[in-house]
Simulated assay, not measured.
Amino acid sequence: MDIIKLDTIETYCKTFDFRLTHPLVAVVECNEPEKLKPYMMNWGFYALFLKDMASCTITYGKTHYDHGDKSIIAFAPGQVCAFEAIPGKDPKFVGVLFHPDFIHGTSLGQKIMNYSFFAYSSNEALHLSPSEFQVIKHLIAIIQTELSTEIDSYTHNLLCDNIQLLLDYCVRFYDRQFTERKELNKDILIRFENLLNDYLINGKAEKQGIPTVNYFADQICLSPNYFGDLVKRETGKSVKEYLQQKLLDVAKEQLLDPQKSITQVSNLLGYQYPQHFIRFFKRMTGNTPNEFRLGI
């Protein structure tokens, strides 16, 4: 399958025969089967699609995007994904597209990295209730109306403000979705803890290095951002903080064994150089590993 490089919104509109009303921001609607054929896309801008029905499968690598009726899917610059229509179902969606250049120097530009759902690259779309669907649909309609209005000194700020409002509502609705999936989230945390124990205790860290967010997200088949948000919501700690605390706990336990040298403990935890482990331990506890052993 060929990759279509979508550097600009103009390229997107030309490729899929949508009308271009602004070079850096657009609202597009699709209700026709010929609009959505198998494609591999490399995004060069932000895109958020509101789907009224499940009409295609979306794949990142070997992982299918989990989405269905009344859902939102989002893409960020640099992402690559494949689209393939579901036989017998016509695509029906409305999308908001905006280029990074459009939001430079704005409040939205400063906040854009906080919208972590743009990097939920596997398994997790936002599934909407009927009332949430209407809210999102209404906000997109406001953006569409603004784009069809003659450009004046207010246009840019109003478009940015309404896109930001749309994204803020997505964050709110994702919070609701996380809450509804609390039992599933607990199962994921248990699996994470078991994987982490295995990694640190059974010698994997010594071979593969310090545990990382990406490693465990991949093991659990979630995107790093979604996995990080899940852990943060359930534990109050970022995955990085969670991993550091676990490293510290295991380090303390290993340091209590007088037969193991500082270098051996360092290697067991995945540190390439003992001095890096010593700095980590002192930053976390205020003491060096030797001081900890001596009870200082």
Rank of each mutant, 00 (worst) to 15 (best):
L159Y: 11
F133S: 05
V28H: 12
E34V: 09
E183C: 00
V25C: 09
T11I: 08
P91C: 11
Q219T: 04
M53A: 13
H64A: 03
F117R: 03
S153E: 15
T11S: 14
R176D: 15
D69Q: 08
G270M: 07
G228R: 02
L48M: 12
A119N: 15
P274A: 13
Q144W: 08
N267P: 00
R19K: 13
N42Q: 13
V213E: 14
V135H: 04
M40I: 02
G95Y: 04
A74V: 04
L139C: 05
K186L: 11
G44W: 08
N214F: 03
A141F: 09
Q110V: 00
N185Q: 04
F18R: 06
A54W: 06
N42R: 11
Q244C: 06
R181F: 02
F117G: 04
K51C: 13
D52E: 15
P87A: 08
L36V: 15
F93I: 01
H67D: 10
T263K: 12
Q272G: 15
W43E: 10
N157P: 00
I163M: 03
I3Q: 04
V250F: 13
F16P: 11
L166A: 06
L184N: 08
L184P: 00
S122A: 04
P100A: 08
I73S: 14
V25Y: 04
A217G: 13
H67C: 01
G105T: 05
K207G: 01
T285V: 08
I4F: 11
F178G: 00
D257M: 01
H104E: 15
M1H: 09
G109I: 01
Q254T: 06
Y174C: 01
D249Q: 12
C170I: 13
M1R: 06
Q244E: 15
F83H: 09
Q79S: 10
F292E: 03
N114W: 02
K260P: 03
I136D: 07
V213K: 10
I278A: 14
I210M: 10
L248C: 10
V213C: 08
T145K: 09
R176Y: 14
I140R: 03
E180I: 00
S71E: 06
Y39V: 04
C160M: 04
T8M: 02
E180F: 00
A47M: 01
L184I: 01
M1Q: 06
D218C: 01
C81L: 07
D101H: 13
I3R: 04
L147G: 12
Y169F: 12
Q259W: 02
A76L: 01
L200N: 09
V94K: 13
F216N: 09
I136R: 05
Y39F: 14
Q79G: 05
I103K: 04
Q264S: 14
